[in-house]
Design a protein around this nucleic acid. Sequence first.
RNA 1: CGCGGGGUAGAGCAGCCAGGUAGCUCGUCGGGCUCAUAACCCGGAGGUCGCAAGUUCGAAUCUUGCCCCCGCAA
Length: 307
Amino acid sequence: MKIVFAGTPEFAVPALRAIYETYGDGLVAVVTQPDKPQGRKGILTPPPVKEEAIGLGVPVLQFPRIRDCVPELAALHADLMVTCAYGQILTQEVLDLFPMGVWNIHASLLPAYRGAAPIARAIIDGENVTGITIMKTELGLDTGDMLLSKSVEISDTDTADALTGRLALLAAKLIPEALGRIGSGKYSLIKQGEGFTCKKVQRTQVDFSKSAREVSALVRGLSSAPGSWGSVGGLILNFFYALPAEGSGAAGEILSADPKTGLVVACGEGAVRISMLQPAGGKCMADTAFLNGRKLQKGVRFDQPVL
RNA sequence: CGCGGGGUAGAGCAGCCAGGUAGCUCGUCGGGCUCAUAACCCGGAGGUCGCAAGUUCGAAUCUUGCCCCCGCAA
């Protein structure tokens, strides 16, 4: 069975590795997004999947638009393709290249959270369970029939990073099993019910008028990318971790800001302790470390987002 | 040449503009007090002030060059 793997970010790396370990040379090529300029200096950075593929010695293909590169893909004469956070929409032409189909690894329990950023969305929404679904890819966005899925619990202290890591490992565990079934031809698919599609998440200014629970979920869901932030006294702070804490006050009011108790900010309902943050120009640090050097006045309020 | 912040003790910062004894908070180590502590009191250790050159009697501080880190934006 000749397999092509299409994926891009860190999330796809364990799955790629699992396929390589199971099928070895059966993994004939890895398709990934082109290197993108990153950072202030615009350094061209290869996506994680590319680096992993090179390490494994698997040929790498990077198409600016995969739909324009059907001949190159066809030349591989592969039997099937696995996609995992590849980052490009496939066309029917692409799908038709693979006799055994194109299969997608998606980080949610479909039909919930189709589309982009399912992991961040699940945390932000306060879900307590999500998972991995492996499904047949069709033209609709994550609407194909499901082969198998497995759930993972979300704790109310989870960050997107942590959850992404766990889901990536689960994906790596499931994909060999899925490919085994597909290879044997003995499998059945389940149709998806009514679902919804979510959009990409953006860097968001925290609205402290929401409840502590919601604020915490937002911060954890966007940590560490694309991030949530707030501004107080002309200072921009990126938030990495926040949990509900004791206290109450006007939304955005700093209830405590000393190195012992940490940074506690009042929300519309309850309060949150922002325990990991990053000042503009600085590194990510604990609130206690931050407060050792920068004094924040108790009672001062964080700016509310302008709508 | 996209805009901007920064590099001073293990951590986070002040000091720089108006050169002249290396400071603060936290941590750490030792001692004291307390039934107790995110408590308090006393004491100690710990620093090539990013690197190099220059100006000067004297540079963390002024000048020039270089290295590194980071926030936005893309």
